[in-house]
Amino acid sequence: MDMARTIAIVEDEPAIAANYRDAFERYGFSVRCYSDRESAMAGFRLALPDLAVIDVGLGDEMEGGFDLCRELRSMAPQLPIVFLTARGDELDVISGLRLGADDYLTKDISIAHMMARVHALLRRMERISQPQAEADETLERGDLAINVDRMLVTWKGQPLDLTVTEFWIVHCLAHYPGQVRNRQQLMDAARTVLDNNTITSHIKRIRRKFQSLDDGFNEIETAYGMGYRWSSRTG
């Protein structure tokens, strides 16, 4: 990699911004920090970053991050965007907004997990931009096809728009059809620390996304008390 990737951090809490910057720089990224929407947009107009990490609440603008995300998405449709929120219960809201973010995380995620996500997203970008030189690692379960490298999921040939967290959950489930994955395993796979309810809502969102393509989707089964499993019927 000849040139350091650029990460834009839009965060109004200077300590967090500084910590993330230090961490990213440690991993060899070049980091630009913005503390509000205007300065971030100004910076983006000068030069687009390779990836943006945006806090939902920016100073006085409680949801300034959403507007920023929309503007940035219109400027760069392919740019990976990761949302940070201080409130776990906002995840559903953010998801519902269909802002086109690639992932949304709560702020207390560990830096290691954050790095894993950033790397995954960047690698996906890389793969997508590169012609398909070698065979990607893929996984097929009946109608489900997963391109692990590009983090792409298709159902009956139709692409499914999943966030990174969701992708990892689906991947984890589909990897061992018929086997129950408990919440902890799913959390580990998604490299996150979430409460049980959040895993439930993630599963709910994933099902909904599948069902928007196929009303009859019923492959993710609930094992009461234990967790979830990918249906073994097609496997």
Partner: peptide
Amino acid sequence: LSHELRTPLAVVRSSLDN
């Protein structure tokens, strides 16, 4: 509380990670 604490917690956690 959880809302207000999450930001300082993020500060603490990211600092410790660093």
